[in-house]
């Protein structure tokens, strides 16, 4: 069931295997209500690169991945925030939607696992789930069980979002 979230023309079907994997780790996200799949599973990029709009590289200092910032740690929330700042974002206190601003949040769980998500113009969030699919989701609560709490929020001005074309 797709299209209920106003994500026009982007929601797709994914395999049952991936649907089950996502359901198991993100039980608070309900497909068609608070979650839409927007890509097949793809191991060519990760949540950090996707938060910056890249879907061809994994941003990490590892084999088969990409990391061209030797002075920035690739495995800490602070390091990720520094990289995101290089892309025109500044730190802010709230992940609440603000017209004309794009936000990126960094989440961290108790084991130190990191996740990044970015806001859409229509107020939803975009996440790449590990090596799995991309999703659009309502709010950030549904990520909490697996990815933990929001620890850093960044934003950048998007003049092209000041008149909300989705409405």
């Amino acid at each position: 069931m797709h299209g209920l979230l106003g994500v026009r023309g982007v929601a797709i079907e994914i395999s049952d295997v991936w649907r089950e994997r996502v359901k198991r780790l993100f039980p608070d996200l309900q497909e068609g209500t608070s979650l839409e799949y927007t890509s097949e599973a793809d191991f060519n990029y990760n949540c950090l690169s996707w938060a910056l709009g890249c879907n061809t590289l994994v941003f990490e200092n590892s084999k088969g991945a990409f990391w061209m910032w030797p002075t920035i740690p690739d495995d800490t929330a602070e390091g990720w925030a520094q990289l995101i700042e290089l892309h025109g974002f500044t730190r802010t206190d709230t992940a609440e939607a603000v017209l004309g601003y794009e936000k990126v949040v960094i989440l961290e769980n108790e084991e130190g696992d990191l996740h990044a998500a970015r806001s859409c113009e229509n107020g939803m969030w975009k996440s790449k789930l590990g090596t799995g699919p991309d999703i659009d989701h309502v709010g950030l609560h549904g990520l909490k069980q697996t990815y933990g709490e929001v620890v850093i929020v960044l934003e950048r001005h998007r003049p092209d979002w000041e008149t909300n074309s989705e409405s």
């Binding site: 950090l48 990490e60 590892s62 696992d113 996740h115």
Partner: peptide, 10 residues
């Protein structure tokens, strides 16, 4: 099953 959701390859 236990690692697909990690962003970290390491």
């Amino acid at each position: 099953d236990e690692t697909w959701h990690f962003s970290s390859l390491r």
